[in-house]
Write a protein that binds this DNA or RNA. Structure first.
Lengths: 363, 363
DNA sequence: TTAGTGTATGCAAACGTTAGCTCACCATAA
DNA sequence: TTATGGTGAGCTAACGTTTGCATACACTAA
C-alpha cells in the first residue's frame, strides 16, 4: 500500500527501529543519522501509520467529545474552540461527534470511541424524559476511561463536570430587573429535567425571595420541548405571559428569546420603555437588527477549556498510575451584559413610572 | 488492559479466530457456537479493539471531513447531517474537524487524517488570499486517497466537487426583482477569490444583461473579509449602497444580510414598500423578528448527502481495484423562497410606482 | 593488555485483530 | 468399503509500529 517505516529503513540503510527512533527525535540516535533519516523519510513522502503506532504503543492520546445540538446553539462553537485548543496544546487529539439530542446516536458514538480506545471522554450529554446514557458512562468509568460532563450534569453520577453558574446568572439578571424597579417579572422557562433549566429557574425564584417579592406562578410560562426548533413555543409562551402584564421579561435561552421578541414586536410593545427584556445567552442577530439586548453571557470558551483540562489531567494521571483524583465540579461564572433592552440606561426616566407601580402593588 | 478476543476465546473454550468470526456473524461458524460466543462476549463486556482491527484488516472504513466555519454558518449543520447520515448508512465512519478558516489548522487535520489512514476526504476548503492546501490535496489524490470538495471548488484541481448552483440562485433572485419591476438593484458582494462569491456575482450580472439592464458599478458594494464577523462590513456597505437610491437590495450571504437589515432599519426604510430585499441564505432569527425574508435557499442537506455518496463511491471503487472513475461536478439547485421582503405579495400596489421608474430610466 | 563505560544501533517480541490455509469429522454416494 | 464433499473449527502469519534488551564499537582508566 503506502510507504512504511521499513521502506525508509531500507533506503537509509539502517534498521527500522532506528528510523522509528530518529523520527521521534530520540537522543539515542546520533544527530547525523537522525538528520539523514528525516531527509530520506521526507523524500519518500513517508506518512507514519497512526493505527500501528497506537496498537503498538498501547496509547492513542485521543479524547472524544460528544456534543449535542438540538436546543442550544451559539455557545457550542466557542466551547469547541476552547476544547480543541486546549487538547491540542496538551498534545492530544480530539474526535468530536454531534449526537443531535438523540440517545441512540449518542450511544453509538460512545461505543465508537470506546472501540477506538479513546483515553477519555468529554460529553455534553443527551438528557430527555426518556432517559440518558448514564449507565454507559458508568461502565466507561469503571473501565478506567475518565468522563467529564460539560454544560449539564447528572446529579446521580459522581464525576467531574463543568457548567455555567446558571443559578447565579439567572439570579443576577432577575436582581438587576428588581433593582430597576420591576416587580412583575415574567420568566420563560423550559423542561426542568435539564439541570441548567432547573438551576436558572431556581436562581430567578431566589432573587425574588431575597428581595421579598412573592413568586407568582402565572408569571412563569414554560415552552414545550418541540424539535427541531421551539421558537413558536417561545412565541406562544410570551403571548400568554403578556396577558399577565409583566413589566419585564426574562427568557431562559436563545430560542425562547427569539420567540419572545417576535411576540413582543407583534404586540407593538416598546422595549425597554413599556417592557424591560433580558435573555439568557446572546442572540447576535437580534442584538443587531432588533436592539442591543441585555443578556446573561456564558463564558463558553472557558467552559470548553476547563473541561478539556480536566479530562486530560485525568488521562495523564492514569498514565502515571497514581492514586485516584478527587471529583471536581466547576461552575463558571456568567456575566450580565447590560445593554439597551433592560432599560437600565433609561433608568432616570423610568423610575417614576415603575415606582408608581411598586407603590400600587406593594405598599 | 481491557478484555481481548483471547479472553473471550478462553472463556468460550474455542480458538480466538472462531471468536473473531462469530462476532462478525461469519457463516463458517455454527449458529450454536456463534450464539454461545456472543453471550460470553457480552457477559465479559468485551469491546473490540478498532485499532487492531484496522491494522490487521488494512482498512479503516473511515472518511474524514474538514469543514470551515468562519464566514458561513447556518448551512453547515444540515450539510454535516447529510454527510453523517449517508456515511453511516454506507457503513463508514466519519471524523470531522473544523479548520476555522485557518490554513495551518486545515493542514494539520489533513495530515492527521492521512496518518489515521482515512480512506477518503471530504473538504470544505480554506481558500484565502494567501492560498490554500491545494498541493496537499493533490498529494493525497496521488496517494490514492480520494478527495471530494464541498461548497467551493478549485478551478485548477480536477477532482469531484459538489456545490450549490450559486450562479443560478443569484440569477433567479435578481430576475425575480427585475420581474417585480426593479431596475436599480443593489448587490452586496464579498471577496471574489471565493468561487461561490464570484459565481453569485456573475449570476446577478447575467440576469441584468438578459433583461437589458445596464450593469452599474456603483450598485455593487463589497464587504471586506474581516473576521470573526463582518456584520459591520455588511452594514457599512449597505449604508454606502443606500446613497445610490436602489429600489431593491440583494445580499450575497447571511452575514451581509444581517448587516444590511441593520442599516435599513437604522435609516427607517420600509421593506418592502420602499425597498425590496432578497438575501442569499435564510437567516431564521431575522425572518422571525424582522420580517419573513425572501431568500435563496440552498439544499444544504442534499449537498452533504451527495458529497458523502461521491466519496464513498470512490472509496468502494478503489477497494474493488476497478479502473478509474470519471471526475464529477455536481451543482445542486437552489430554491427561491418568496416571502414578504421582496414585495412580490404587494406587487399590485407597487407596480405603478416602479413602472414609472422604469419609464424614466429606460425608454 | 584488560576491564569498564558509554554511545549508537540492531534484534525481536509484543500490541489485538483478520483471514488464508489446513484439518478433523461426519454424511452421502458409488 | 472407499472416495467425495461439505461443514465447523483451529493454526498461524500477517498488519506497521514501539520498545526492552542485546550487541558492537570506540574510548578511557587501571
Amino acid at each position: 500500500m503506502s510507504i512504511t517505516i521499513k521502506d525508509v529503513a531500507r533506503a537509509a540503510n539502517v534498521s527500522y527501529s532506528t528510523v522509528s527512533r530518529a523520527l521521534k527525535n530520540s537522543p539515542k540516535i546520533s544527530a547525523k543519522t537522525t538528520e539523514k533519516i528525516r531527509r530520506i523519510a521526507k523524500e519518500l513522502n513517508y506518512i507514519p501509520n497512526a493505527v500501528a503506532r497506537e496498537l503498538s504503543s498501547q496509547k492513542t492520546t485521543t479524547v472524544g467529545f460528544i456534543y449535542n445540538i438540538g436546543t442550544h446553539k451559539s455557545n457550542l462553537d466557542p466551547i469547541m474552540e476552547g476544547i480543541e485548543e486546549t487538547v491540542a496544546k496538551e498534545g492530544f487529539q480530539l474526535l468530536s461527534f454531534n449526537s443531535r439530542e438523540n440517545l441512540k446516536t449518542e450511544h453509538n458514538y460512545l461505543r465508537f470511541l470506546h472501540e477506538k480506545r479513546a483515553e477519555g471522554i468529554l460529553i455534553f450529554p443527551v438528557i430527555t424524559e426518556e432517559g440518558s446514557n448514564l449507565s454507559y458512562l458508568k461502565s466507561l468509568i469503571k473501565g478506567n476511561i475518565p468522563v467529564v460532563v460539560i454544560d449539564r450534569y447528572f446529579p446521580e453520577l459522581d464525576t467531574d463536570y463543568v457548567v455555567s453558574d446558571n443559578f447565579g446568572g439567572a439570579y443576577e439578571a432577575t436582581a438587576h430587573l428588581i433593582k430597576l424597579g420591576h416587580r412583575r417579572i415574567g420568566y420563560i422557562t423550559g423542561q426542568e429535567y435539564q439541570t441548567s433549566v432547573y438551576d436558572r429557574l431556581e436562581g430567578y425564584k431566589k432573587a425574588l425571595e431575597d428581595h421579598r417579592i412573592i413568586y407568582q406562578k402565572e408569571l412563569i410560562k414554560k415552552v414545550a420541548p418541540k424539535l427541531p426548533s421551539s421558537i413558536e413555543e417561545g412565541w406562544r409562551a410570551t403571548k400568554d405571559l403578556l396577558k399577565e402584564r409583566p413589566t419585564a421579561i426574562f427568557t431562559y435561552n436563545e430560542i425562547a428569546t427569539v420567540g419572545a421578541l417576535k411576540a413582543i414586536r407583534e404586540e407593538g410593545i416598546n422595549v425597554p420603555e413599556d417592557l424591560a427584556f433580558i435573555g439568557f445567552d446572546e442572540v447576535a442577530v437580534a442584538s443587531h437588527i432588533f436592539m442591543p439586548l441585555t443578556v446573561v453571557m456564558q463564558q463558553a470558551y472557558k467552559i470548553g477549556e476547563m473541561g478539556a483540562r480536566m479530562i486530560i489531567e485525568r488521562v495523564k494521571h492514569l498514565h502515571q498510575k497514581k492514586d485516584c483524583l478527587e471529583t471536581r465540579h466547576i461552575s463558571v461564572k456568567t456575566k450580565l451584559l447590560v445593554r439597551d433592552s433592560c432599560g437600565a440606561k433609561l433608568k432616570g426616566r423610568m423610575k417614576v413610572n415603575l415606582e408608581g407601580d411598586i407603590d400600587g402593588f406593594n405598599s
